[in-house]
Design a protein around this nucleic acid. Sequence first.
DNA 1: GTCTATATTGGGATAGAC
DNA 2: GTCTATCCCAATATAGAC
Lengths: 215, 215
Amino acid sequence: MVAKGPASADSARTRILDSAERIFVQKGFVGSSLRAITSAAGVNLAAAHYYFGSKQGLFKAVFCRCLAPINEQRLLALDTLLRENPKPDLRDILAAFLRPVMLHSNQDTLDLMAQMTAEPEELTNPILAEQFGELVTRYTAGLQLVFPKMREQELNVKLTFVIGAMLQTIFNRSFFINVDEVSKEEKCQQLLNFSVAGFLNNDQPGIPKEVELHD
Amino acid sequence: MVAKGPASADSARTRILDSAERIFVQKGFVGSSLRAITSAAGVNLAAAHYYFGSKQGLFKAVFCRCLAPINEQRLLALDTLLRENPKPDLRDILAAFLRPVMLHSNQDTLDLMAQMTAEPEELTNPILAEQFGELVTRYTAGLQLVFPKMREQELNVKLTFVIGAMLQTIFNRSFFINVDEVSKEEKCQQLLNFSVAGFLNNDQPGIPKEVELHD
DNA sequence: GTCTATATTGGGATAGAC
DNA sequence: GTCTATCCCAATATAGAC
């Protein structure tokens, strides 16, 4: 986008991204063929290689186009939060993390995120490291401000619960439990309530209480 | 197993199932080839078709061999619970649901379950309906005994959170959050604590309180 | 920058010998 | 019940014309 290219070229590239997004979401990486993607985009097979080099390159471009804006929002929200309050509230942190995902309007993006856990690791590991590494590090640090005495392992496990609940909720395909009639806003509220309560809970038999809220 | 067949035939069938389980877990359905599976099993390609009819048939056989025993345990535990106490405890119900999964020793089985959400729907829908339909119906009914006034939608959403947290925790591949050093037992305890607290929580802004615990 | 044509590889399934 | 050989199809990737 630095130099002004021909309009047709840019729209061909975008059309490939658009149809790739749709088909990757429906069929997964291995189940999607460049032929299906390019013919749905109305361009030639060779165009995909010209613009993205390989099927992997195309997948990465699709994923980053979807996820980068969301994760920027999440980091910006966390920054704002910590700047205003060096001892942040648990609910605010979780909201900063969950809202950009839960309230997002593009279902493809949500499905794509949820589906990443089942794609081939060779494909996903470099992409996830790039797109989620800093996010996880900084949110973990933020949560440690709220729970300064909680063991890191316990914090990681709880964060895993929250992420799992989030992914299962946004994903279009459930284990035969229909939540389609619940609005995005209500799901987000419920997930926040559920997660805050789960995080604060501490009566584990045989495990000493270590939570200490500020103030 | 009704009639006594030749030992070699039965062990060939089992060897195919074993290597299929391993490879399906690693590569997913689309990413696994019958050729890779049969050659890893030390049998001929045609043997897979002879015993299982098709790649789909083999996948279903693998999945059911793994999951059927777990879901039988879950239903049996629920039955026992409800027979002993017609007004069951929330924690007991969730434990009956989660324990057979969380404490299971075969990692392939756990990964297979977690990966199902991302496999092609044409493949998974019939299998999931058969293996999880009754389970979800009966556990939902059990939870309604605990929360007789909770809207069914809200109950479904919360159950989705629990299942998502479970799947994310048992899955071998996380979003760069390492929980490998935590024992299965501790993860199970933490998930139970988290889920019970999340279920009981009810202070949703703008949504009326409807939870009513028995007694 | 966009196309056609093709090289190369690998997939599921089946026929038919033994 | 187990094998070999093969049919048929689809995939990624690239070479090279325009």
